[in-house]
């Protein structure tokens, strides 16, 4: 018997947003009956570019149904830019966690979302297809997908990769291959971390401010502008970065979210892990 959280049980017994939408803006279909779970996700945008309606149909176990239902609830009211930041971990966390062996259900949700967004961006033409070398032939899992779950979920073992993607869970002949991919990705991750912290240490104050300005310009402002908002750098005091929201972002109910998950996350990623971003009130 699986140890499901009350939230998983609730979404399984009372799934939200089941069905199909007429003339959707984006449709994503992933998985297959042979693999044991499949998900079809579709959404419609309002005139401001926010997801106003989202529906799903799924073939799968309780946690697959719950993951899909949870994802639709998370997507409502989000812009495409916000939606595409949702990771499989966000879905699992929304449900109060999933059993280890069921994490692949959350990955299926994220894959369906990605496919639906891709379909939307190509004007309803693109169908989801596998990218990169197929590692697991039983379940059709590619090297790209395996690398992605390792990075997003900080995975270390073949068993974890199997829990998250099913790769290696069939005939098992690709398990050595998966172990090699884990080795390579973990090495890359360690190297990236070393460069990131090393670069931050060597920066002078002026270099740091310049890099913050560049990051805001290239990585943050374009995303905010798509929603009619903007951002201004006010001051940099040691590791404290003071900014002000402008336009639609000023007074936006989700600006606190944008602050933490977009501005601070990007600055930490591109400048320094130690930065703390604050909003000028």
């Amino acid at each position: 018997m699986w140890d499901y959280t009350d939230k998983v049980k609730d979404h399984f017994l009372h799934p939200r947003n089941v069905g199909e939408i007429e003339n959707p803006d984006g449709v994503g279909e992933v998985g297959s009956m042979a693999c044991g779970d499949a998900l079809k996700l579709m959404f419609k945008l309002d005139h401001q570019g926010r997801i106003t309606d989202v529906k799903f149909k799924t073939f799968g176990c309780a946690s697959a149904i719950a993951s899909a239902s949870a994802l639709t609830e998370m997507l409502k009211g989000k812009t495409i830019q916000e939606a595409e930041k949702i990771t499989n971990r966000d879905i699992a966390e929304y449900l109060g966690g999933l059993p280890d062996q069921k994490m692949h259900c959350s990955v299926l949700g994220r894959e369906a979302l990605e496919a639906a967004i891709e379909n939307y961006r190509t004007g309803g033409t693109a169908k989801h297809k596998l990218e990169g070398r197929v590692v697991c032939k039983c379940f059709g899992v590619t090297e790209n997908e395996i690398e992605r779950v390792i990075r997003e979920n900080n995975l270390h073992t073949v068993e974890e990769v199997t829990n998250y993607t099913k790769a290696g869970g069939g005939c098992g002949s690709c398990r050595d291959d998966i172990a090699a991919i884990i080795g390579r990705v973990r090495q890359e991750m360690a190297a990236e971390e070393a460069t990131a912290t090393g670069a931050a240490k060597k920066m002078t104050n002026i270099q740091k401010i310049k890099l913050i300005e560049e990051t805001i310009e290239k990585e943050i402002r374009p995303a905010l502008r798509m929603d009619g908002g903007d951002i201004e750098l006010i001051d940099v005091d040691g590791n404290r970065v003071i900014v002000a929201f402008r336009g639609m972002c000023a007074g936006c109910p989700v600006s606190a979210f944008t602050m933490k998950d977009v501005v601070e996350a990007r600055l930490r990623q591109f400048v320094s892990e130690d930065l703390i971003v604050e909003e000028l009130r």
Binding site: G36, G60, C61, A62, A64, K166
Partner: peptide
């Protein structure tokens, strides 16, 4: 899918089992 059937039966107190992947602990 079998696990979903079993858990809905379980809600009604009906105990059965399934040969589906999700219930076998394998994939």
């Amino acid at each position: 899918e079998g696990e979903a059937i079993l858990l809905l039966l379980n809600e009604l107190g009906i105990c059965a089992s399934s040969g589906s992947a999700c219930t076998s602990g394998s994939l």
